[in-house]
């Protein structure tokens, strides 16, 4: 089989190591950043490189990780979803709203059996995702604007449901998954791992995953190939909302309370995780593997800064600078790749 041999040979980097490294820059740079940060903190603080602390980091990035799964799909399609944190928040609040609260909680809630509460909460986030999808595909509102509006809408629903109060109880399944653990491993880490794995499998091994990459890589070509581009974009927005909703429910259980503005930092964190990991903002390149590396970069950074003696306000600036560096690499990697492919 001479022909299949040449096929294989050519599949392997036909252009030598230099161009190969350049085309792989988006995967290599985040990984090097992660190694560098880990080494740095390991030397800077004796309490950083411990098994316990690894557990902390994993737990700390879990909610972001769950939300980032869906967002990875969206960014791979060269779209954006700014409503993820708000949808997480409203879903978390909704699941508490449908659960019987202690008598001192002053919320006019509607108690339901746990399974029904979870189902209703999921339906709510899916519905909000669907509204995003319709706005983007049917009306043609750019996702940046559409999801900005949705961010407000979801925040508004949250406000109406809790009216400034705090709810504490969630269905027992949710509280177990959010704050329980099994054999010393927090359930929330397991859920995040499963969702990341599922996202990876869908993107890599399913037809839908291929479509996501094709639509993101060249939307016009996807349309000329007879793909239903709108359907795929719509599906991706719904997936993002549902992942956010799951992250929100578990997050509420993890924090032990459901209240307004609880997830605000998760918007930036999730976008940062995806982009720092190297998924292209222009679509079509990257994936869950990148997102995982991005999550760890962020997790190590956030956690590590707590271990070294540093002004807590400076932390915010440092995070901003790291994000900027990642954006620069992201855009630069795209340009390098285009040059190599030309």
């Amino acid at each position: 089989m001479a022909s299949s041999e040449t096929a294989l040979a050519a599949d392997r980097k036909p252009r030598g190591i230099g161009p190969f490294l350049r085309s792989q820059m988006r995967n290599i740079a985040p990984f090097l950043t992660l190694i560098f940060l880990s080494l740095f903190f390991a030397f800077a603080s004796p309490s950083f490189a411990t098994l316990d602390n690894l557990g902390n980091i994993l737990t700390q990035v879990s909610v972001t990780g769950i939300i980032a799964v869906g967002l990875t799909f969206v960014i791979l399609c060269a779209e954006i979803d700014l409503s993820i944190a708000s949808i997480a928040n409203v879903t978390g609040i909704a699941v508490a709203y449908f659960t019987l609260q202690e008598s001192y909680v002053n919320i006019a809630n509607v108690p339901m059996p746990g399974a029904v509460a979870i189902l209703l909460a999921i339906l709510l986030c899916a519905l909000l995702g669907l509204v995003n999808a319709l706005g983007l595909t049917v009306i043609g509102i750019p996702s940046f604007i559409m999801t900005l509006a949705m961010m407000q809408i979801a925040a508004g629903i949250s406000a109406l449901l809790v009216r400034g109060q705090i709810a504490y109880k969630v269905p027992s399944l949710i509280s177990t998954l959010g704050s329980g653990s099994i054999g010393g491993i927090p359930w929330i880490v397991i859920v995040a791992a499963i969702m990341l794995l599922a996202g990876h499998l869908v993107l890599t091994y399913t037809r839908f995953g291929r479509y996501v990459y094709m639509v993101g890589g060249n939307r016009e070509a996807a349309e000329y190939s007879g793909l239903n581009v709108k359907l795929i974009l719509g599906a991706v927005m719904v997936i993002s909302a549902v992942c956010s909703g799951i992250g929100g429910m578990l997050g509420v259980a993890h924090f032990g309370s459901a209240q307004q503005n609880e997830f605000d930092t998760y918007l930036l964190d999730s976008i940062a995780a995806v982009v720092v990991g190297g998924t292209s903002l222009f679509g079509g390149r990257g994936g869950i593997g990148n997102t995982i590396v991005g999550l760890f970069v962020l997790g190590v950074l956030n956690n590590g800064l707590d271990h070294v003696n540093i002004d807590s306000f400076l932390k915010i600036l440092i995070r901003g600078l790291i994000l900027l560096a990642a954006l620069v690499i992201n855009v630069y990697a795209q340009r390098l790749r285009e040059q190599t492919a030309d």
């Binding site: 016009e220 793909l227 492919a341």
Partner: peptide, 22 residues
Amino acid sequence: AMLFHQEPVYKNVSISILDRIS
């Protein structure tokens, strides 16, 4: 307009029949 320049040839060919073979 109709081809994916950064994807391999086989993905460019199979895209239209993907729903049939998988």
